[in-house]
Simulated assay, not measured.
Amino acid sequence: MSSPERVNSPERISGPVVLAPMEGLADAPMRDVLTRIGGIDWCVSEFIRVTEGLLNVGTIRRGVPESEHGWRTRAGVPVRPQLLGSDVRWMGENAALLASMDAPAIDINFGCPAKTVNRHRGGAALLTEPELLREIVASVRAATPTHIPVTAKMRLGLTDTSQTLECAQALADGGAGEITVHARTKVEGYKPPAHWEWLARIREAVPVPVIANGEVWTTEDYRRIREVSGCDAVMIGRGLVRCPDLGLRILQDTDAAVLGWDELWPWLADFFRQTRLRVVDRHSPGRLKQWLAMLGQHYPQARELFDSLRRETSADVVTRRLEGPLESAA
C-alpha cells in the first residue's frame, strides 16, 4: 500500500497553529502524518535531554530525523529542536551544536511535568528559579547565531502562580524571542481547566510574542483561547492527536469533521509502517494502540479497532489488518 497523499490546505488567514512537543507521542512518524494531513505551521520536537557534555549527533538524528532533510517534515513543515536541562554551560554548548546543524530555531523546555524529568532538575522543576531560567536562556542565546531564534516553553509555575510573571520576564530578559505558555502549573498536570486568563497577563508583562497552549480540543476552543489571551499563535498537543484534522478545521473555520474514518484509514497504516522502521516489532503495536485510544474520542471505529487489537502483540498481524480492506478493520 502506498503512502496517502498530503491533504491540500487552504491558505491560512488565522494565526499560526503549532504542534506541541509531546514525549512519547508526537514523535517523527506522528509529526509526519499530522503535518501531511495539514493545518500545522511548525512543530517542536520531543525534548532532547542535556546533562554534562555534548550530545551525540547520531542521537539527534534519530530523535529528529527531519534534521537530515532541512529540519522539515515531508510536507515541508519546519521542526524546531527542543533542549531540556539545567546545566547552563552545556545547554549553550549543545545549542551551538544544533546551530551548526542548521536548526531553524532552538526551543528550551521549562514545562515538562514528568516526575522523572523534574527529579533531575529539568522541565517545570526549574520554575522556582527565575534567575536560573534567565541564565540558561542567555547561555543558549549567546551560543546561537543571531539569525536563529531562541524560544522557550513554560508552565504557570510548579505548584502555584506566585512566580509566573517573574519567570516569563526572566525568559525574555535572557533573550527568548518567543515564549509558549501552557496555562497550567506542574502539579495541575493536564487536568482541566487551563487558565487562559493568565496568558493575557503574561503577554502584557513581556516584550516578546506569547504562544497560547492548553486545553484546545475544537475550533471553538481555538477561537476562545485567542480571544481570552490576545495571542496570535496557538500551540496544540493532544487535541491534534485525538483529532488529526483539527488544523484543517481551524483553517476552514468549521467545527465539522474534514476527514472521515475511511479517509483517516490510510494514514493509520502509514503511521504504523513508519513506526515499525523506528521501534522494535514487539513495541510497535503499543504505539498504534495508544493513538487509537485517543482517536476513539472522535471516531467510534477507532474504539472498535482498539478493542479488536487490545491483546495483539504481533506487528505482522497489525500490518495485515491495516493494509487489508476497511470493511474488516474492526
Rank of each mutant, 00 (worst) to 15 (best):
E23I: 00
D27S: 09
A28N: 07
A28H: 14
R36D: 04
R36N: 11
G39N: 11
G39E: 07
E46P: 11
G58A: 12
R62G: 01
P65D: 12
E66K: 04
S67Y: 08
L83Y: 09
D87K: 13
W90S: 13
M91T: 11
G92H: 09
L98A: 05
L98P: 04
I106S: 05
C112Y: 05
H120L: 10
L126I: 13
R141I: 03
A142F: 00
H147W: 05
K153H: 08
M154H: 04
G157D: 05
T161M: 01
T164M: 01
Q169P: 04
H182T: 02
A183M: 01
G189L: 02
A194E: 06
W196G: 00
L199K: 00
P207S: 13
P209F: 03
P209A: 07
I211H: 00
N213A: 05
E215F: 00
E220S: 10
V228S: 01
G237N: 04
L240T: 00
T254P: 10
V258N: 06
G260K: 10
F271E: 05
R278Y: 03
V280I: 12
H283W: 09
P285C: 10
R287T: 08
K289E: 09
Q290G: 04
W291T: 07
G296N: 09
E304A: 15
E312G: 07
A315M: 13
A315L: 12
T319K: 11
A330K: 12
